[in-house]
Computed example of a mutant assay.
Amino acid sequence: MARRSVALLAVAVLALLAASASASTWLDDKFKTRGDVRADYDKSGHLVSSLILDRHSGSSLISKEKYLFGKFSIEAKLVAGNSAGTVSCFYLTSGPGNGTDHDEIDMEFMGNTTGDPVVLNTNVWASGDGKKEHQFDLWFDPAADFHRYTIIWNKKNIIFQVDDVTVRAFKRYDDLPYPDSRPMEVHATFWDGSFWATRNGAVKIDWTKAPFLTSYRGYMEHACVSKGKGEKSDCDGGSEEWMDRVAEDDDRVTIAWAKRNCMSYNYCADGWRFPKGFPGECARN
């Protein structure tokens, strides 16, 4: 009986090690790192990548590949306590700069003082045209546990989801800018956004609480890897799940719920920002 117990224990240990090795590939295989990035396993055997922010630097994960359309998701556990001035992000970008050749799709988590909601800022840039933010007060404590954040990007629309709940869909119109031609990298970052993040920059980071930590795990993608200029992208076997995905009735219900109960900023209602008229998609949506 004792030998059998030892054998069973050995099998269990090997299975756990195999699971751990498998879990590590999302970080090792998919991303490069910058700054202070630490990797460890949680109690459930998930590989957790912890990004550190201090006075000297933030940190980031940057995909090794570029993609032209896909479904991208990650679980994040954000800064505990006073997170004012910090910004944790999960986003796609075609590269640095805000020029006419720049595209970007953002999910940015704007830190706040203890007890106040963390704000999720969603935004879309196309050919350097941005300023399309919808902001939502998260309806849970994003530092208490991991939650999944998802971007679905195809030729028809961009869908933003929190724990599989659709909070926004940005629709493509043929006569308006839309990110549909520039391959983009996936980034997960943690940085000092004191100039902007909390109450329009009025509340800065309290550096006496540094270093700060935000954690990511469970990265998943179903996407088309860009093969370079003039070459067709290589799409994985899961593309049928998202390639033609658009906002349906269930999505419209949750979008309306998020707008009614959680939205704290809508660019299509900011007349001060657009004194000459709102962007073209505002009237159509």
Rank of each mutant, 00 (worst) to 15 (best):
G58F: 00
G99S: 11
A39K: 10
N154I: 02
E65N: 06
V165P: 01
R182S: 14
F160G: 01
S127Y: 08
E75K: 14
A169D: 09
G193K: 00
S239Y: 07
A19H: 14
D141L: 02
P177R: 00
A12L: 12
E241N: 08
T100E: 04
S22N: 14
V13W: 10
P211G: 15
D29R: 07
M184L: 12
I105Y: 02
D116I: 08
A80C: 15
P179A: 06
R3H: 14
D129K: 13
K66L: 10
G218L: 12
F69E: 00
E231F: 13
F170R: 03
K171R: 15
L9N: 15
L176S: 07
L138I: 06
S59L: 04
Y216T: 08
T33E: 11
D29W: 07
A202Y: 06
A76P: 01
M243C: 11
S264Y: 02
L176K: 12
S94D: 14
W242C: 05
V6I: 11
V225K: 08
V203P: 01
G237D: 07
Y41L: 03
Q161Y: 04
T33S: 06
K66Y: 04
D137A: 13
K276C: 10
H222M: 01
W125Y: 13
S50P: 11
I255Y: 12
A143D: 03
H56W: 09
E133C: 06
S63F: 05
W26S: 02
Y265C: 15
L17M: 03
A247S: 11
E240D: 15
T122A: 12
V225H: 11
G85H: 04
P96D: 06
